[in-house]
Amino acid sequence: MKNTFKLKTEYITLGQFLKEITVISSGGMAKWYLRENVIFVDGEIENRRGRKLYPGMMIEIPEEGTFFMEKNEELITEEISDESN
């Protein structure tokens, strides 16, 4: 299944991402999960929970789906209006 994930910040770490999509229930489980499961970031195996994920990247988690990182356009609009005030 293909999904999009809208980033709320400039980037998200792989461990935080796994928690956000409810693959794991706590950040402490990320290290264990990555040791026991294969995850691909842009087609390459990744096992670092601190790996930064940016807009345009593709994360594949077998049995969970494929996720495409996107910018949250609403946040960009808010930042621009904050700067103009």
Rank of each mutant, 00 (worst) to 15 (best):
T77D: 13
F5V: 10
I61F: 06
I39D: 06
S26A: 04
N47M: 03
E64N: 07
G65Q: 15
E78A: 11
S84D: 04
K71F: 00
G15K: 08
Y54G: 04
E60D: 11
E20F: 00
V23C: 11
E10L: 14
E64K: 14
M69C: 03
I21H: 11
W32C: 06
P55K: 08
G56K: 13
F67D: 00
M1D: 06
F68W: 04
E44Y: 09
T22C: 06
E63Q: 06
I45W: 03
W32R: 07
I45S: 11
V38C: 07
G15R: 11
Y54I: 04
L34I: 13
I76H: 11
T22Q: 12
R51E: 00
E60N: 11
S81T: 01
G28W: 07
D42R: 06
T13F: 07
T22E: 15
F68G: 13
M57C: 02
V23Q: 09
E10D: 12
R35W: 03
N47Y: 08
S81R: 04
G27M: 07
W32F: 12
K71P: 00
G65W: 03
I45V: 15
Y33T: 03
N37Y: 07
F67I: 02
K8W: 00
E79R: 14
Y54E: 05
E10T: 12
E74R: 15
E70H: 10
N72F: 00
V38K: 15
E36Y: 04
E10Q: 14
T22G: 07
E64V: 03
E36H: 11
F5Q: 03
R48K: 12
Y33A: 03
G28F: 09
R51L: 02
E73S: 01
M57I: 05
V23P: 05
G50Q: 12
G56Y: 09
E44K: 15
A30H: 10
L75W: 02
F17C: 15
G56N: 13
E60R: 05
M69F: 01
G65R: 13
V41I: 14
N72T: 06
E79H: 13
F5D: 05
E10R: 13
V38R: 14
M57Y: 05
N72P: 05
M57K: 10
S25H: 11
S84Y: 07
T4C: 11
L75V: 07
K19Y: 01
K19W: 07
F67C: 04
N72A: 08
T4A: 08
L14H: 05
T9N: 10
I59S: 10
S25M: 13
L34Q: 12
I45F: 13
G65C: 14
F68R: 10
F40P: 01
A30D: 01
E70G: 03
E78S: 05
R49T: 00
G27I: 02
T77E: 15
I12C: 02
K6R: 08
I76Q: 01
D42N: 15
P55C: 06
G27C: 14
E60F: 02
M1L: 10
I76G: 03
Y54W: 05
M1K: 04
G43R: 09
F68K: 15
D82G: 00
F67H: 08
G28R: 09
F5I: 07
E20M: 03
I61L: 14
K2T: 13
E36D: 09
L53D: 09
S81V: 05
I59C: 12
A30T: 05
L75T: 03
K31C: 06
I80N: 09
E79W: 01
Y11S: 09
I12A: 01
E36C: 08
S84H: 04
I39Y: 04
